[in-house]
């Protein structure tokens, strides 16, 4: 059965689509009961933010692909200096993105990665 062409689509639909949308639907059902100024929503906001930031920090600390072989100090340094520049520039997101990307690009080039 697993040799049929449509089997892969079944795997994607069950192990991908259903596996992700279950949580989105549960989010709607939970969020529908939360009041915009409630304490519970404050907690949900905190959990959502901490989750997203944990995923984000892991992208920098444990990258896959091309960056996997680059030094940790370069990645953290580029991200940290970019964030600092963003704070100094009145929280302009573009400043962070351009600074970090250029620093990392120059760093990789200089190290010959």
């Amino acid at each position: 059965m697993s040799g049929e062409w449509w089997w892969t689509y079944v795997v994607i639909a069950v192990a991908g689509w259903l596996a992700t949308d279950i949580w989105r639907w549960m989010g709607v059902l939970t969020g529908n009961r939360l009041d915009e100024d409630s304490e519970a929503l404050q907690w949900v906001r905190a959990v959502a933010t901490a989750l997203v930031m944990a995923v984000t920090a892991k992208l920098v600390v444990f990258p896959t692909g091309t960056l996997a072989g680059s030094p940790l100090w370069l990645r953290i340094g580029a991200a940290a200096i970019g964030f600092l520049a963003f704070l100094l520039a009145g929280q302009r997101v573009g400043v962070a993105v351009v600074t970090s990307t250029l620093l990392l690009g120059f760093g990789l080039y200089w190290l010959g990665v």
Binding site: A15, A19, T20, W23, R24, M26, V52
Partner: peptide
């Protein structure tokens, strides 16, 4: 996949009231 996607729940729940 489903363990990696649990974060969707608080993410969705935090924007639905708005």
């Amino acid at each position: 996949v489903t363990l990696s996607s649990i974060r969707m729940m608080p993410m969705v729940a935090s924007i639905v009231p708005e």
